[in-house]
């Protein structure tokens, strides 16, 4: 028996406080890229009771994703956005999710991100990260943007930090661990970086602007 919307909300309110939970439930966050970072970020935000999530990824779930991304073997081959929506609805059945199976480009950015006040960059490729960050900072100066760079390999998790890199722009990661040099990504270290991003988003929704 799944709890009612009111029961779920009351349980969150009891833990997070009335005012803060109201802010979480009224917030809309776009998670751009649903790999090791984005799948974890989205689940963290849904658990906290963020009201609306836009989940964007053009890719399908692949067996190579299972070492670090929040998908299941029975979801292989399915669009990541849909698979993740299904998982999140098991966790937070009343979270409003817009699952978008598309590639974000300069041309569709306004349409896809338009109504979200908070943007979380969770892409894999450096040039895609830069494309999104430049696009958001150039075209949507009113939105908050949290990005990530540097979480590959098995360097110390203590190197991963959140820093403020502009007026409404934050960046998480160690800044240097490149998957193209280190070869691979490990679940916990990517999850640490994703947790930094999700924490920063929740802080911003709460009105805390320090990194």
């Amino acid at each position: 028996m799944i709890p009612t919307r009111e029961e779920m909300y009351a349980a969150l309110e009891a833990r997070h406080g009335r005012e803060r939970q109201k802010k979480f439930s009224e917030a809309a966050v776009a998670v751009c890229g649903l790999g090791g970072l984005g799948s974890n970020v989205a689940i963290h935000l849904a658990r906290a009771g963020v009201g609306r999530l836009t989940l964007i990824d053009f890719d399908n779930v692949d067996i190579s994703n299972l070492n670090r991304q929040q998908y299941f073997p029975d979801q292989l081959g399915r669009p990541k956005a849909e698979a993740l929506r299904e998982t999140i609805h098991r966790i937070a059945p009343y979270c409003e999710i817009n699952a978008v199976s598309a590639k974000i480009t300069d041309d569709n950015m306004a349409e896809l991100l338009g109504d979200c006040g908070f943007i979380c960059e969770c892409f894999d490729k450096a040039n895609q990260k830069a494309m999104l960050v430049n696009g958001v900072l150039e075209n949507f100066p009113g939105k908050y943007l949290v990005a990530a760079s540097g979480m590959a390999g098995l360097g110390s998790a203590n190197e991963i930090v959140t820093r403020k890199a502009g007026g409404r722009f934050y960046i998480c990661g160690d800044g240097h661990s490149d998957v193209n040099e280190l070869g691979t990504l490990y679940a916990p270290r990517v999850a640490v970086c994703a947790a930094h991003e999700a924490t920063m988003i929740l802080r911003l929704i709460s009105g805390e602007t320090g990194p």
């Binding site: 760079s149 661990s177 990517v190």
Partner: peptide
Amino acid sequence: VEVVSFVGGG
């Protein structure tokens, strides 16, 4: 000047 340089992985 702030140069934010991105590396791959996510």
